[in-house]
């Protein structure tokens, strides 16, 4: 067996069926963690409840280790996995705008969907805002096309940036996450 099982060019019905099933798992896990609650999401940024950091980093580390070991054992073809592309300038600006919007809205796009699906009207309004924002941005983006497509680096990864082996970055991220968890537990104990 060599994954991905449904690489690019696989039947559309099969990949869309997988999308639906994976989405159900994604939404279930987010709701279980309580991240469909704006107050719980925002509490992260007032150091009261660090569930956002804990969920995000334990998910990131789990998937990262899975990808690393599966590709090590030849079960997953890393070259066939799509790495989101890097655009340094736009991602710096986009990160600032997104982080600000996250605090104003109280939810990110994924968690707003969870919030709305579980009956919360504020979540519905975040989704309406995102949808309107996509219209607006899409219609004016031509004027900013040079910036939008600037500093493009393609599927650039940290091992290339630092010129170190893939496994070394994986180990460093694990250490970073464990340190972050330890600090988070300490902060939460202090906040209580």
């Amino acid at each position: 067996m060599s994954a991905p099982l449904l690489p690019e060019g696989a039947p559309l019905a099969a990949t869309l069926a997988a999308a639906l099933v994976l989405g159900v798992g994604f939404g279930f896990a987010l709701e279980r963690a309580g991240l469909g609650s704006a107050r719980k999401v925002v509490a992260q940024f007032y150091w009261r409840d660090l569930a956002v950091l804990k969920v995000l980093f334990s998910a990131l580390v789990t998937a990262m280790l899975g990808v690393f070991w599966l590709s090590r054992f030849g079960l997953l073809d890393l070259a066939a996995v799509h790495v989101p592309e890097t655009f340094v300038g736009p991602q710096l600006a986009g990160g600032v705008l997104f982080g600000a919007g996250l605090i104003v809205a109280g939810l990110c796009p994924g968690t707003a969907c969870v919030s709305a699906a579980t009956g919360r009207i504020d979540g519905v309004f975040v989704l309406l805002g995102i949808f309107s924002g996509m219209f607006l941005t899409g219609l004016i983006l031509r004027k900013f096309e040079r910036f939008y497509t600037s500093t493009a680096h393609g599927a650039w990864i940290l091992p290339e940036l630092f010129d170190v082996p893939y496994g070394a970055v994986v180990a460093a991220v694990v250490v970073l996450a464990l340190a972050a968890f330890a600090v988070a537990e300490r902060i939460e104990r202090g906040a209580r």
């Binding site: 809205a105 939810l107 796009p109 309004f125 939008y148």
Partner: peptide, 19 residues
Amino acid sequence: AFGGGVMMAAGAVLARGCT
């Protein structure tokens, strides 16, 4: 909620993705 959503959309477009 609506305004924050608009801001996040613009940010996610520039960043080619969200959280």
